[in-house]
Computed example of a mutant assay.
Amino acid sequence: MWKLACLFKTFIFLYMIQEISSHFEFTNFKCKSDDEKFAEIEICQLKSINRTYKYAYLKVKLHQTPITKVKVNLALFKRFNGYRPFMYNITFDACRFLKNIYTGSTDLIIKYFYQFIATTSNMNHTCPYDHDIIVVLPINVMDNQFSKVLPFPEGDYMVGTHWFANDIRRAALKLYGTLS
């Protein structure tokens, strides 16, 4: 009888642990164009539909098209007395990545971060880019990627990106959030 009671308590405990989940929330979104003649950031903001549904919205007007050579530096930071590098700092050729994404010869880390915007932006095709860039990043995508696909520890995070076209830095984006 004692073993059955212990087994039941263990089952209840494991069930309760399974119900505990993380939640990601946006805290800030900063965008900076380094060359306004090349690209102008028209909209860079967090929008809130209600208390639980928020999204990051970015619209970039490209003035010098077509863009055929794009590199991205992507870094993940965690707050420890200021934001410090945390796990990832990758620079990659975005055009080559998008060309090879479905062949299986791509870096899994880059593919993980690409899944944030794959279905919510118009950057889901290979170069050249001859149109404005629009990204709508809902909180549920961030929540899923940070807590279910690849769980991260609780804390404050920043995803920082630097965008290069023709080997010249053109823009920097910083998306801040809290995982609790």
Rank of each mutant, 00 (worst) to 15 (best):
T126P: 06
F164R: 01
I133G: 03
M87S: 04
N100A: 10
L74N: 04
A75F: 03
N73F: 01
I12W: 09
G82Y: 08
V72G: 06
A5G: 10
F38N: 03
T52P: 02
I12T: 07
K99W: 07
K32F: 06
S180D: 12
L14I: 08
Q64V: 12
N81P: 00
L14T: 03
L58G: 01
F24E: 00
I110M: 03
I134D: 01
A165E: 05
H162S: 14
Y83L: 06
R51F: 15
I101F: 09
H23E: 09
L179N: 09
S21W: 07
H162T: 13
Y57C: 06
K174H: 08
A165K: 03
P128H: 08
V136A: 10
M123F: 09
L179T: 09
F116G: 00
P153G: 01
F146P: 00
F164D: 00
L7A: 15
V135M: 11
Q18C: 11
F11D: 02
Q145G: 01
Y157H: 05
L58W: 04
T65Q: 14
R84P: 00
I49C: 03
L173Q: 10
N166V: 05
E42L: 10
Q18L: 11
T119H: 14
G82L: 11
K71C: 03
K30W: 07
K174D: 04
T65E: 15
L150A: 12
T65C: 14
K3W: 12
D143C: 08
M142T: 06
N73D: 09
M123S: 08
Y83N: 07
F80E: 07
S147F: 02
G155M: 03
L14A: 08
T161A: 11
G82V: 13
R79Y: 12
S48L: 11
M142Q: 01
N166F: 12
T91H: 10
T10V: 11
T91A: 11
K111T: 15
R169G: 06
E19S: 05
L173C: 09
E154F: 14
Y157G: 00
F97V: 02
T106P: 00
F146E: 01
N73T: 12
C127Q: 03
K54Q: 15
Q18V: 10
F24H: 02
Y129F: 12
F97K: 06
E25M: 08
K30E: 11
N50G: 05
Y15E: 07
K47E: 13
F113Q: 05
N124Y: 09
K54M: 05
E42P: 00
T119W: 14
K69P: 00
A75S: 15
T68Y: 02
I41L: 07
S22Q: 10
K61A: 13
F92K: 01
Y15S: 11
F24P: 01
F8C: 07
T119Y: 13
Y83R: 05
V136P: 00
G160P: 00
S121D: 05
N50Q: 08
N81S: 12
N144Q: 12
N89I: 09
S21M: 04
K71Y: 14
Y102H: 15
N144Y: 15
S33A: 08
T103M: 09
A75H: 04
Y53Q: 14
